[in-house]
Design a protein around this nucleic acid. Sequence first.
DNA 1: ATTTTGCATAACTATATAATTATGCATCAG
DNA 2: CTGATGCATAATTATATAGTTATGCAAAAT
Lengths: 313, 313
Amino acid sequence: MLDQRIKFRHLTCFLEVARQRSVVKAADTLSITQPAVSKTIRELEEHLDARLFDRSKRGVTLTDFGKVFLRYAGASVTALRQGVDSISQVRMQGGLSINLGVLPTVAASVMPNAIRHFKTLSPDTTVKVVAGPNVMLMGQLRVGELDLVVGRLAEPDQMSGLSFIHLYSEHISLVARPGHPLLADKNPDITRIREFTVLVPPKHAIIHPTVDKMLIAHGIGALPDRIETVSTSFGRAFTRETDAIWIISNGAVASDIAEGHLVELPIDTSDTFGPVGLTTRIDSPISPPVEMLINAVREEASRHHSEQAAAKT
Amino acid sequence: MLDQRIKFRHLTCFLEVARQRSVVKAADTLSITQPAVSKTIRELEEHLDARLFDRSKRGVTLTDFGKVFLRYAGASVTALRQGVDSISQVRMQGGLSINLGVLPTVAASVMPNAIRHFKTLSPDTTVKVVAGPNVMLMGQLRVGELDLVVGRLAEPDQMSGLSFIHLYSEHISLVARPGHPLLADKNPDITRIREFTVLVPPKHAIIHPTVDKMLIAHGIGALPDRIETVSTSFGRAFTRETDAIWIISNGAVASDIAEGHLVELPIDTSDTFGPVGLTTRIDSPISPPVEMLINAVREEASRHHSEQAAAKT
DNA sequence: ATTTTGCATAACTATATAATTATGCATCAG
DNA sequence: CTGATGCATAATTATATAGTTATGCAAAAT
């Protein structure tokens, strides 16, 4: 049971004594007298009903209890400090803000609902949504310009210092407009896509290497007539109006497929199965607002996913 | 600046009022009178120099400040609660313990040093190291029996509810004893490995599908003479004493290769490049001791990695 | 138009607190 | 042996606290 009488004074004093391994020095930096420190520590020990320091005549050392408690005490005061800080931040800027990077896969599927849900929970937090090539987003995330990036797991060499939270997995799809010539055949020869314009992800896209591998695995070499694009809005419009074939992560076109605007080509893309999730920095702790957004995205993703699974049956 | 006079009484009272949206109800559940709650909230507001609630005649609502502060206040009391809990845990069990799952890749390379380093930082924390098939370890992690699993990133479908922190990436190696017949040729025909006994990871190993794909890509079908094993000690001994070829993640045999006990076959395994890292649960927050261990592993991994890079030049 | 609801304020009281100074006591260095 | 170091304890004091009861007051409900 938590002793309500514990003040932050006790914790900061404890932390200072632990850091300095000395009551006298701690008293000095805290600008109070030595007996005051002694007494404060004793109070804390009484409240916790555990000895935190071993006292000797040559300084003090943490007991096992103290060593353990040290971490939690630090976390506790840090949290409160952040709380006080963010209050003044709200006062100055008129609100908190989250900077969010969004990759194409989720930009149109999971994220709109997730953010909508988050905004009902926390309407005063400004969410800034940034789209762009994943290399750029990961760079910004690492530097701290972004708090969170949602999308496919980036290539290993870009992941240093970053943490990945899995949401679901998806594959890459080849889609075309309904009534596309290739679809006339029930089991079309997939190498025939070389006869058409193909929209492919550009070099810097996460799925580029995966797409390459898949094409090779299916015996399709270099595509003679190709357009490289990241723009799903362009890809969507272009594919619906021409005979072009669009190679794109499934999430980006899932709703279009469901609504019949686009049709998936019958090709085995199981090799392209890959994880979609949330990427964050490791070093800086996740702030509560970001944590709330993460939860909202996770919830929405699982809902979204179960819907998709249901739709397939 | 943090007001030292803030007590946990203030925070818990604040949290309760925020939760109930009512001073009267909060007073009830806290078993004190309504004016006491009013006063406590006012004190907290004075200490923070910010209004936390809008008072109306139909309950109270959080202000923007209050909404923001709420999260941090929650985090702060949670941390202290955990601290108090872990003290009693230490008292009962005579020490904290971390349960750690270790996959073969890192069992012999990164982890020994990492844990040694961690023990110098936190000698009183018992570290229990569990090895085993990854499916089992991931299951235990999800249930809470393990706090952390270190190794290759598991297949997407096992990653739900888990978070992955990238450490480095490695590929899969084909190794044999020095002086192996295949090595007589400078550029041996790799399909000839079918002529030998091959040790391969079993079905439930993380790298199993990757190995399968690689074998197919190199035009090697089913292996006629194969032994499936997870045991690196068996694999190591068997490979050194016979003409068997061992397909195993590079990390598990890196030191043997460096010391000349085993030799890598010259085969392109770049497709098998994959992330190695730390897997944790998302929902339960990472406790300070586990966080320290994570840092120790990360440090050791980057040191280890830079050494490897240096060794290659 | 009352009554009820929900919170604030005031007045009061017994404790608790947060310091202080003065002092004691063991250990360690010289 | 002596003094310095480092912490604990005691005595003291002004202030803060954590509650209490009693009361007020505006909005909402009846």
